[in-house]
Design a protein around this nucleic acid. Structure first.
Lengths: 218, 218
DNA sequence: ACAAATTTTTAGATTTGCCTAAATTTTATT
DNA sequence: AATAAAATTTAGGCAAATCTAAAAATTTGT
């Protein structure tokens, strides 16, 4: 597969919301930053190769094979994102462009060993799930931290209350978007949480926890 | 720069033995696995871009700018090789193909941080020196282990005596091509060596040391 | 030195992925 | 349901990087 073909497949995957949805030529053109006519050309090629199902004027969907390819690209992209953040000190919002390039590197062993090196992560720095080698993956959902079950881990993806005092609190406690938070325990009577963040244990009140969104798996 | 241009520059660099040597069209064609006519075309383009010095029928050399570009590609290639071996458990002879792809990834921060993550290595798994960010690098030389000065480190790149008993010895002591060996000390009277390999200290006789080639720096 | 062999370049074609402009199909509106 | 608007496809071209075949320059052999 060429680089360009892989980009198309990935975009069709994302626009199709992971599975069935028919994807329009124009939508693809916009994401690819190209013209609809170019998209038509490429779709024809992808169709001949069996990567997409296509009937003229009716939009495209990924074939079973195309979906497999898409998931493998997404897997590579997200594993590289984890690598960049965990090992190379990138912040969660700097990784996309580089991962976009790294996702095209072809070597099965590379990805298997990278996965192992990273400890088989399940989510990337944006909280999105990482497909397994065979293409399965858990759905991710967004939850307020105080609603995350004990023993679960998630990525901090947003705040409900963005008032200065709250943001200051986050800053002081070194909690930032993209951080991975593990819920160790919950105190019954006041709802306060014992969490682990960057290998450090801290306790936060229910009030704080109900203002932080995590993206968790399952 | 396109991927193909980068490949040409790198090949011209290697064929020119690192610097001045004029490189012939045919030699480039062979390395690129393409035809001399294609090379002519590309050389013309590289020349227009100021990457090479070129007079028809007279071969090419890298310009100052072209050399800079070449060194940056070599740097990336070798850093990725170190990464693959040190962090992802690749063996020294498996890394080339993958590094060949990774060397084209464009991100200054990526390479800087990779360099840091790897502890600013000076040599790659084949014993070749890694250019610094600014393009300087030490020459590497091949020496028998017993001639390596105390305090130096090198990569095991070959054996002088390849008899089965010797190879068996290497195997038993977990010494393999590509291993990094640090010379800790040398015993005056029998010439035996105290070396560090994969963080383990071992002692080897002069007889052994005089059969192992290391590639060292400076 | 000069013809033969080799190397290198030019000319013209091909493929991939893109473009513009025009034609066609679908969808939206009245 | 007919027409206007929007989306999509086709047609014809372009640039990059390659190819084959043929021409030109250089090197080699005697």
């Amino acid at each position: 597969m060429t680089l360009s073909e892989e980009d198309y497949i990935k975009i069709i995957y994302h626009l199709g919301k992971g599975e069935q949805g028919k994807v329009s030529t124009n939508a693809i053109a916009e994401k690819m930053e190209t013209k609809p006519s170019s998209v038509s050309d490429m779709i024809k090629k992808l169709s001949e190769k069996g990567l997409v199902n296509y009937k003229k004027y009716q939009g495209v969907t990924l074939s079973e094979y195309g979906l497999k390819v898409a998931l493998s690209i997404v897997r590579k992209h997200r594993l590289w994102e984890v690598f960049l953040v965990e090992k190379l000190e990138f912040s969660w919002d700097e990784v996309h462009e580089v991962a976009e390039q790294l996702e095209h590197i072809k070597s099965e062993k590379l990805i298997d060993m990278l996965d192992k090196h990273l400890g088989f992560p399940q989510i990337d720095p944006h909280g999105d799930p990482i497909p397994s080698k065979s293409g399965e993956f858990k759905k991710s959902i967004k939850r307020l931290l105080n609603e995350v079950p004990i023993g679960k881990e998630g990525i901090c993806v947003g705040v409900k209350d963005s008032s200065p005092p709250f943001l200051k609190f986050l800053d002081k406690n070194k909690i930032a978007l993209g951080d991975s938070i593990f819920v160790v325990d919950k105190e019954e009577f006041d709802g306060s949480l014992h969490i682990k963040i960057r290998d450090i244990d801290i306790r936060i009140s229910d009030q704080i926890a109900s203002n932080l969104y995590l993206r968790i798996i399952e």
